[in-house]
Structures are given as structure tokens and as C-alpha cells.
Nucleic acid binder design. Sequence first.
RNA 1: CGGGGCGUAGCGCAGCCUGGUAGCGCAUCUGGUUUGGGACCAGAGGGUCGGGUGUUCGAAUCACCCCGCCCCGACCA
Length: 575
Amino acid sequence: MIAAMRYSKLFIPTLRDDPADAEVVSHKLLLRAGYIRRVTSGVYDYLPMGLRVLRKIEAVVREELTRAGAQELLMPMVQPSELWEKSGRMEKYGPELLRFKDRHGHGSCLGPTHEEVICDLLSRELRSYKQLPMNLYQIQTKFRDEIRPRFGLMRGREFIMKDAYSFHADDACLNAEYDNMFATYCRIFERFNLKFRPVEADGGTIGGNKTHEFHVLAESGEDLIAHCSGCDYAANVEKASSQRELQTLDCSALQTVDTPHVTSAEDVAAFLSVPTSQLLKTLVYRVSGGENDGVIVAACVLGDDQLQEIKLIHALAADAVELATDEEVATVGGITGFIGPQGLNAMVFMDNSLKDATGLVVGANQKDVHVTGLDISRDLESVSFVDLRETRAGDSCEKCGSAIELSRGIEVGQVFALGTQYTESMEVMFQNKEGKRAIATMGCYGIGISRLMAAVVEQCNDDAGIVWPAELAPFQLGLISMGKSEEVLEASEAIYKQLLDAGIEVLWDERKERPGVKFKDAELLGLPLQLVIGDRGLKEGVVEMGWRKGERSEVALADAVNIVIDRLKPSGCSN
RNA sequence: CGGGGCGUAGCGCAGCCUGGUAGCGCAUCUGGUUUGGGACCAGAGGGUCGGGUGUUCGAAUCACCCCGCCCCGACCA
């Protein structure tokens, strides 16, 4: 990367005001500081400063992956449909996969991820167990036609990702590599000075048996993560399970009560003067995919709980579930607003928390009527108990019983132990020690490079602008010439050249601007260190050195270069 | 796709309700005065008022349709 630049020659279109269409701080600041510009929904230009940061992130990721034993390759963005047909994901991936035909009418798609391509490659080239294990990665542009791109770089349709794929002769080896990648990810995020948390996660469309997500903690994060205050348990709420308190209620007999026009759990509870937690919510869903495709099912949680649909999807081994329409509810004998598990002509799933629940209020499957005094084990038959409810703050941890807390996070990475999910359908085979053909086992590991850029800014900013960690700043030093006297310009240029020779990345602000403008821009851009050269100090033979976040001091002009080199040279130094 | 908000100069906004020759601040250009925390004076350039249709003598303004953007929900690195 070019070490030094003159500000007046660099394309850094900074903005004085926050752009009106940016909501979160990273989006605002990256636009204002001239790092990115929007091209179309979820698609961005990386301007020179933005690209420099991106390259820095990539450099750290490359260094750590190389250290961890992975090799870089580059796969294509355009992928043939056949590979997706073969893996079975052509259907499953849905409209997020951007499909098109080339001029010969050949079905193609833009790569949202590369399991198919890498497996295709390995299926051709892998022969012997002696070639394993192998971990291949790339840093490349992905395209996912997201339903709702938002928050600038945080959720783009086109984005840059580091994706690694490992192949192994057996699961023990896969697990070792999973741990290796897990540790590598921790090291990478630590180098960026991020507050982050690895959490147990759901597999999503990638799939897999074992998977963790890495979340950068930030209020603007789109994910909710649950973590225990007493032990190391942490999981995405999509996956998290926990224990809730169950009230002990009297087990009086079943009784029907009229509840005219009272439908929602809150309203019914208020109407009957009981806590919402005494209500049983019965939600009716239509299933898509899997063995129950098209089937209508019911799922129950307590009135004050939320149903986590992903958990229901897993319980059904389905692709998706959608709340049933009133008509669909009627086909299984329910009436929207008064649905209950009793006598419903559908599979009924109950959250585990309900096993011993008694004295519940449920819909009677009759207009304007509810039933009280329901005892799950006494009054219901053939229901399946599964984990369905969304974990809430204050629940108790299943491991240690301590209180669960919730935080928001930005998912910047995920690791998966996939097993043979893709290698089987894609026929990634090799000859093992015994001379037999065997299916390779596989892991995959992603880091959202461009998202990481936004996540870092989310955590590292103040009222004045961005505060880059030393290793990610587009330039380490902002050299500010104050005033336009010959002495100042000469002194600045001399220092600029010495720093350039020393390999310090310096942005020399030699513009004919007033001091305030230069300070504001330097702070907006987030450069870790400033060196200010002005007439006032020059008379005394000193220049001013100031950290982006912290103290300022005067140093002798003669020592300035050495001091700067000393402070900036050890990479990863703090500011 | 459902719900909410918005679209007027590069950026931020006013004008719209109550129709009558398009405005403000910042930015840009020219000249001058300034120069340690987003200067001042004088002048200048820059607009299909998101697009279309309609109502009207006349539409940024009213009506209808379309497009785009932002926020909340379903997706995910």
C-alpha cells in the first residue's frame, strides 16, 4: 500500500452533515468521512480511503489464516446452475440466489457462497487421504439478493467475504480444525480491538451440526444474543435455550368461560384478571419443505413468551413456516383468536416449559370462548414437547442456573462443522488408508470483511468521527501544516519525506484550508495520530503530537520523526 | 411481501395545508481580507421540484398510477 499521500491529491469527499438516509453511526460516518458511496440498494463504492481500510482488514485476516495453515485461492463469482442442482440447494436457497442465463441460455447464478464450487473442485482433484486435511480460503465479492439491505455496509447485497473450506478424512480431524479456526477468529477480532462474543448458533441455509457465530457487541446489531451471567454459555436467541419460571397454579377442573371479542393473550389475561403467563398461546403455522410440506401445525408457548420460529422449523425438519391464514386455521378446527390445543385436528408442538404446566387458560376452538384450568399432562394426549420459546432476559441458564442476559450483536463471522452434508451430494471422495473409497468430511468458516469494517466503526467512534484501531487506519498519521508560511511548508515536507522513507503511512494535509477544517477532517477520518506543524511552535522549535483519542504533547521538531516512528512502528500499538 | 415515513441544487432543509414566474444554509467557482478548531465581504454558476397521467387559464403545491429511498417484520457474513 502506498505509504504517503498529499491530502489535496486524494479523493476524500467528506460531508459536513449526516446524510439523511443513514440511520446507524457506521453508515453515517463512513459516508461522511468519504469512505463509501452508495451505487444502488445494498451495493457500494469503496472510495480510496475505504479501500485502504478494507485492504488492512484483509491483510490481518490473511496473516492469521496463513498462520493457521489455510491456503488462499480464488473462485469465480459466476457459477453454473448445475452445481446447485447437484447439491440440492437450487430450490432451497430461494430468491436470495440471483439467477440468470448467459447468451447461450445456460443457467447461471452469482455466488452467494462457495460450497458447491469448492466441492466440485475437490471432487475432481481429491484422491488420497494423504492430501488431507486441507483448508482453502478466498477473499471475494459475494452477492445475495437480500430482501432488505440496510445500515450501509452492515447488510449489503454485494459484500466482501472471507470464506474458508476445510476437508478431512474423519470427524476427529474436522473437529480439531474447527477448534483451530475458532481460535484463529478470536485472534483476528482481538487484533481489531473489538468487544466480541462467540455464541452457539443456528445453521441457517448453510446447515451443519455444530456452529458458532462471532458477534461484535453493538446496540445497532441486528441479532439478539443470550449469555449467562454465571458461566460461559452464550447463544443466538434463535438457538438459545433456557429455563423459565413456571407458576404453581391450582389444578381446578376444566371450565369454559365466555370471552366475547377478547382474542389476544394480553386481552384475555386482563379480561380474566390472571397474569399473561397463565395463558397458553396456540399459534397455527403452514409448513413448507420437508416431510410435512403444506401441512398445518399448531405450536404452543406461554402467553408472555414469544415463539422462535426457527426452532419450530427445526422440530419439523422443514425449510420455513408461515402463520396460517384464518381459512387455514379453520381447516384444522380452530378459530383465530380462540385457538386451543384441545381437539385440534393438527400436530401439536408444545414448548418444553409446558410439560408440568397446570391451571392454564386456552382457547376453546369456539368463537368467544376460552377454557380455564387446563392441566397439560392430564388433559392433553399426543403432543410433542420441543424447545420453541425465545429465551428472555432473566431466564435461568440450563448449565448453571444463573441469570441469562441479552445483548445485541453484529454477526461478523461464523464457523461450521458441516460433516458430509455437501461432500456426499457433491461426491467429494478419497481413498482411505484401508484403500476404500470414503466421503470427505467438511467445515466452512466465514468472515464478513466489509461488514467488519462497519462493525469496527460501530464500536470505535465518538462525536467527532471515526476512531480506527491502529491496525486498520487508512493512514497511521495525519500531518497537518498550519498556515502557509514557507517555513511551515518546508518543515512539513521534510518531515513528510522522512516518514515516507521510514514506511510510516502518512496523510499530509497541505491544503490551503483554515486549521479548524483540517482538524475536523482529521478527526472525522479517524487517523490515530496527528502531527501539527505551525508557525507558533516552529519558533520554539517544537511541533504538536496528538492521539485521536487522548493526550496531546509538544515534541522537539528535531525529534518528531523518530518519536513518531517509535510510537507507530510496532504494529498493533494502541492509541 | 406486509406496516410506517420520505423524495425540491452536490449535502442538509423550507415552500405544499390555502395552486399564481422555485428559496435558505453549507459546499462549488472568481476577486479581496483572514489563518491554532468547520472565517468574513462582494460577486457568480448550478434545479426535468423522482416519473407519468389527470384536474385547472395556471401545478413543486390538488387527484390517480408508477419508480426510488429510509425505518419496523420474515433472510443472513
